Amino acid sequence: MHQFLKDIKSTPIFWMGIFIPVVLVLEWTHGASHTTMFVLSLLAIIPLAGFLSHSTEGIAAKTGDTVGGLLNATLGNLTELVIFIAALRQGLTELVKASIAGAVVTNSLFMLGVSFLIGGLKFRVQNFNKLNAFIQSSLLFIVCIALMVPTVVAKVSKEENMPAMGQISLGISILLMAIYLLSLLFSLKTHADFFKSEETGHEGEEHVWPLNISLIVLAISATCIAIVSEIFVEGVQDAASKIGLSQGFIGFIIIPIVGAAAEMMAAFSAAKKNKLDISVGIAMGSSAQIALFVTPLMVILSYFIAPAPIDLSFTGGLIFMLLFGTLTVALTSNHGKSTWYLGVLLIAVYAIFGVTLFFMD
């Protein structure tokens, strides 16, 4: 309990937890507009993601490397997953697709780029496990292929052949799920040594929350995220029209940054401590998980919870952003060394995507 209270006091992201009860009270009393609720729910999701991340670490520390790694992989993107499910239930398929693409690109370009920049400003050159980076970027290339094929087929096929798109997407989704499960077996069991840190030094043992505290916080956080995500999605369309932002920009930029706020703080902190392997693992591992697990899961769940099933036919712009984002990450991480300027390059590519979507309707 002492460590829990100490982390609450010393971690700025947790101070934003004041927005959680504010959102819940306003929702129950209907005391604010959709746009106001949209903004407040965004602010509430950030500390909830932090609570979820820290509680997962506390549980993982008590369950061993294999189970702990699996738990982190499963719950690491729970915030985005819940938001996607809430949007699916309301039939906002284009928002879901933009958010999926944005989550992959945001984690791999923005999170990794800022980590390189922060670490590079303190250390002239930083080393990281290039084999891990190569494997993760290879997984992202597979996803680019998996999404490009149905997208191209949808563009060139005649309209009467379009019903087959659902079957193609479902089949590819099952394949991606299988690849994801095999990647867990590869990274956690058969070749776990490939993912060891390149850094020989370490700064002592990381403090985690006790198991009982972690379990309680995990349950409360997951419940609150489910409620707040519903509120957030309900206000998306109204906020998009009043604030002047397109659903593409909200889905591609805002939702991924908010959903991954806690992971970003952890990645940036690790880079500042010259533990760049942790930063690379968080950024690229989270991208691979969204691409290989969350994306096909959304396709499968859409058959049960959405007004109509979604497919893997993304717009051409999203596909190219995924492809060129993956290419940029692969090219900048293939030497296992980073500097602050590599971080600038990654952020610049991400900014190009953001500016484009900001001015699009």
Score class of each variant (00 low, 15 high):
Ile310Ala: 02
Ala103Asn: 11
Phe110Ala: 07
Phe14Trp: 04
Ser286His: 03
Ala86Gly: 01
Gly76Lys: 01
Ala271Asn: 05
Leu185Pro: 11
Leu71Phe: 12
Ile172Phe: 03
Phe194Glu: 06
Ile100Ser: 00
Ile347Leu: 11
Tyr350Ile: 05
Glu206Val: 00
Met264Pro: 04
Gln90Leu: 07
Gly204Leu: 08
Phe128Tyr: 10
Trp28Val: 09
Val217Leu: 08
Ile179Glu: 07
Leu112Phe: 05
Ala192Lys: 15
Thr356Val: 12
Leu346Ser: 06
Gly343Lys: 08
Phe304Pro: 11
Ser169Met: 08
Asp193Pro: 09
Ile220Thr: 05
Leu95Thr: 00
Ile45Lys: 00
Gly354Asp: 08
Ile227Glu: 05
Ser302Asp: 02
Leu24Thr: 06
Lys273Ser: 13
Leu215Val: 10
Leu131Gly: 15
Leu88Tyr: 04
Thr151Arg: 06
Thr63Leu: 15
Ala98Phe: 15
Val96Ser: 02
Lys122Met: 07
Met37Lys: 02
Ser197His: 03
Leu147Lys: 01
Ser197Val: 08
Ile18Trp: 07
Leu345Phe: 14
Glu230Leu: 15
Leu88Met: 14
Val125Asp: 13
Ser187Cys: 07
Lys6Glu: 13
Gly119Val: 00
Gly244His: 10
Leu24Ile: 05
Ala154Cys: 09
Arg89Pro: 09
Ile18Thr: 06
Gly102Leu: 02
Thr332Ser: 10
Ser138Met: 13
Val344Pro: 00
Ala103Gln: 02
Trp15His: 12
Arg89Tyr: 13
Ile352Lys: 04
Pro309Lys: 08
Leu78Asn: 03
Ser241Met: 14
Trp15Ser: 04
Val104Gly: 03
Met165Val: 09
Gly316Ile: 13
Ile305Pro: 05
Gly64Ser: 13
Ile254Arg: 09
Ile282Glu: 01
Ala226Met: 11
Leu71Asn: 12
Glu198Pro: 14
Ile135Pro: 08
Tyr350Pro: 04
Glu94Val: 05
Gln167Tyr: 12
Val217Trp: 04
Ser41Arg: 03
Val299Thr: 02
Thr56Trp: 02
Leu292Ala: 00
Leu357Met: 07
Val344Arg: 00
Ala164Lys: 13
Ser10Asp: 14
Tyr350Thr: 05
His30Phe: 11
Phe116Lys: 06
Gly166Ile: 13
Lys273Asn: 14
Val105Arg: 03
Glu160Leu: 12
Pro210Ile: 06
Glu230His: 15
Leu170Glu: 04
Gly244Val: 00
Ile220Gly: 07
Lys273Asp: 12
Trp209Ser: 05
Ile83Phe: 03
Gly235Trp: 00
Val149Leu: 09
Leu26Arg: 01
Val228Lys: 06
Val125Ile: 14
Val208Lys: 13
Val105Asp: 00
Met264Val: 14
Met16Asn: 09
Ala60Trp: 02
Phe195Gln: 03
Ser137Gly: 08
Ser183Leu: 03
Glu234Ile: 11
His335Thr: 15
Phe304Gln: 15
Trp340Gln: 09
Met265Ala: 14
Phe324Gly: 10
Lys122Thr: 08
Ala98Lys: 06
Asn127Met: 11
Val236Met: 04
Ile118Met: 10
